Amino acid sequence: MAEQVSAVESRLAELGLSVPEVVPPVASYQPAVIADGVVYVSGQLPFVDGALPMTGKVGAEVTEEQAHELARQCALNCIGALKSALGDLDRVTRIAKVGGFVASAPSFTGQPKVLNGASELLGAAFGDAGQHARSAVGVTVLPLDTPVEVDLIAHVR
């Protein structure tokens, strides 16, 4: 029997995307934890097929446009972590909060524009349920010298 494709996965397919396998943790934590109808997704890096497409600071080695795409990939990896925890992405009733971290050159102030890459993808994938509160924070350095990291909190049925 074929696996049922969720509405979220169908919307992603329309964008030419598929849900990636969950990225194995780089330290001692779980990619996603469910507690009392809420899924907490750990910070996801922009891995593609097990590798970081680029490293460095946004506003120096990485452009704002490149970082926007990396944030989008982080959000896609968050969706992968959600699917690994839930099985069915249609169980998500709301993406409540997104946290975004941007490894920034000292003068870079476009963190919100970078994180729009994640927010836009979540809105496209989850529709109204993908509209969320968000933080966009500039930091000195992130794990593995990645330019962007995204985590999220989702409510589920």
Rank of each mutant, 00 (worst) to 15 (best):
G37N: 11
A13F: 07
V148P: 04
G87V: 09
E65A: 15
G117M: 07
E69R: 12
S10G: 12
V62N: 08
L89S: 10
E21N: 05
I153P: 01
A129V: 02
V22A: 08
D49E: 12
F126E: 09
R72D: 15
A67H: 12
L17K: 00
Q131A: 09
D49I: 00
D90S: 04
M1H: 09
V102M: 05
L115G: 06
V33C: 10
Q73W: 03
A35K: 13
E14R: 12
Q73N: 04
G110A: 08
A13S: 14
V58S: 06
I153T: 14
V5F: 03
A71C: 09
G117C: 10
S18V: 11
N116T: 15
V22G: 02
L144G: 01
G127A: 01
A7C: 01
R94G: 07
I153N: 10
V139M: 10
Q44T: 00
Q111I: 02
G16Y: 08
Q44I: 09
R11E: 12
L86S: 11
N116V: 14
Q44P: 01
V22T: 07
K83C: 05
S119W: 04
L15S: 13
E149C: 14
I79P: 09
V114N: 06
G99W: 05
R72H: 14
A35L: 06
R134P: 04
F47Q: 02
R134E: 13
V23L: 01
G127N: 04
A27H: 03
G123T: 14
P31Q: 01
V92L: 09
A67T: 13
L115N: 09
G37R: 07
V148F: 06
V39F: 06
Q111M: 06
T63Y: 07
A96I: 03
L15R: 15
V156A: 07
S28K: 03
I95E: 11
E21Y: 00
V33K: 15
S42C: 08
I153G: 03
A51F: 03
A7S: 12
L142F: 07
S104W: 05
D151K: 04
V39D: 11
V150L: 06
L45V: 05
D49G: 05
G117I: 10
M1K: 11
R72V: 11
A103W: 08
P31V: 02
R11T: 05
V23R: 01
I79V: 15
S84D: 15
E21M: 01
Y29C: 04
G43H: 06
A125W: 09
L115I: 08
E69K: 10
D145I: 04
Q30S: 13
G37D: 07
S135N: 02
V22C: 07
G43W: 04
A71N: 09
S42D: 14
F126N: 09
V5L: 14
A81R: 00
E3K: 02
A75T: 02
V62Q: 08
A96W: 04
L12K: 07
V22L: 00
E149V: 10
R11N: 14
M1G: 15
D151H: 08
I95G: 05
A71M: 07
G99C: 01
V58M: 14
V92N: 02
G123A: 13
P106E: 10
V38R: 10
S119A: 13
K97S: 12
R157M: 10
P20N: 01
G43T: 08
V41A: 05
S18E: 13
Q131N: 09
V5C: 07
